[in-house]
């Protein structure tokens, strides 16, 4: 059948995938610590119809070759780890990370996952956990008789004890840095897992060696820009339309062929 039918089909499939990415971004416009995705398009391999430098006759060579493209594909979705807006919530257990770094949390299967979502809670045993219930690593236990909790910019957690018990340092929140943030694998529930592409986590103290600082009483909002996504959506829709036009043109030609011969 006609090659252009299948080339146009790759365009439709890729635009469909991009639409899914945009929809997911828009759906997560209010997800704390969400980082937007970008569909990465790549042209497929080219077919060498006439090699460059091939002989056209005994004396002359083809100056340029003829390479026919075979379409496009979405190679990957890339997470864009730009800073989201910091929203002041005045909740003592909300921490926003401004700058690089992730909170590390332990998963039920014993592995470590990473998150930018700093809406922390206290578990039944007084441990600091994420909204999803995963324990912050290293574990921090707040004493029962704590009256208020302070999380400093450098991650030191201090509890003010009730009845004039004074204050005591109860732990330290660490941040994990990665060489390539975009290589982290999103595993849902606002969590990321480290991969070979991201490199291993480098644990450090907030504010040191490139790590960001913590802001108590604030949360990092999603970094999705609604206007940008809307413009992307219009572009995707139009690109989908031109590709479907290409299919209907090739289809029209084949129909004409079948009807007239």
């Amino acid at each position: 059948m006609d090659a252009s039918l299948w080339i146009a089909k790759t365009g439709l499939t890729a635009q469909q995938t991009r639409m899914q990415v945009i929809s997911n971004n828009l759906a997560n416009v209010n997800t704390t610590g969400f980082k937007k995705d970008r569909a990465v398009f790549e042209d497929l391999l080219y077919q060498n119809i006439v090699p460059a430098g091939g002989q056209t006759d005994a004396q002359s060579q083809a100056p340029t070759g003829l390479m026919l493209g075979t379409g496009t594909r979405v190679l990957a979705t890339e997470k864009l780890h730009g800073q989201g807006n910091v929203i002041n919530t005045e909740n003592a257990l909300d921490v926003a990370i401004t700058g690089e770094g992730f909170l590390s949390v332990s998963q039920p299967d014993g592995t470590i996952a990473y998150t930018r979502d700093g809406s922390l809670k206290l578990s039944a045993t007084g441990q600091l956990v994420t909204a999803g219930g995963q324990t912050i690593q290293p574990a921090i236990t707040i004493p029962q008789n704590a009256e208020s909790i302070t999380i400093a910019r450098n991650g030191i957690v201090t509890a003010q004890l009730a009845n004039g018990g004074g204050s005591s340092q109860v732990g330290q929140i660490n941040l994990s840095l990665f060489v390539n943030n975009s290589g982290l694998k999103p595993i849902g529930r606002n969590l990321y897992a480290s991969t070979e592409a991201s490199g291993v986590a480098i644990n450090g103290l907030p504010g040191e060696n490139g790590a960001g600082i913590l802001m108590q009483g604030s949360l990092e909002a999603s970094n999705v820009n609604v206007v940008e996504e809307m413009v992307n959506m219009i572009e995707t829709q139009r690109a989908y339309e031109v590709n479907s036009k290409a299919i209907s043109a090739a289809d029209g030609m084949l129909r004409f062929l079948n009807n007239n011969l």
Binding site: G11, A39, F41, D43, G71, T72, T236
Partner: peptide
């Protein structure tokens, strides 16, 4: 058609 397919690359 390949050009049209790569309108977003």
């Amino acid at each position: 058609t390949n050009s049209l397919a790569n309108v977003s690359t």
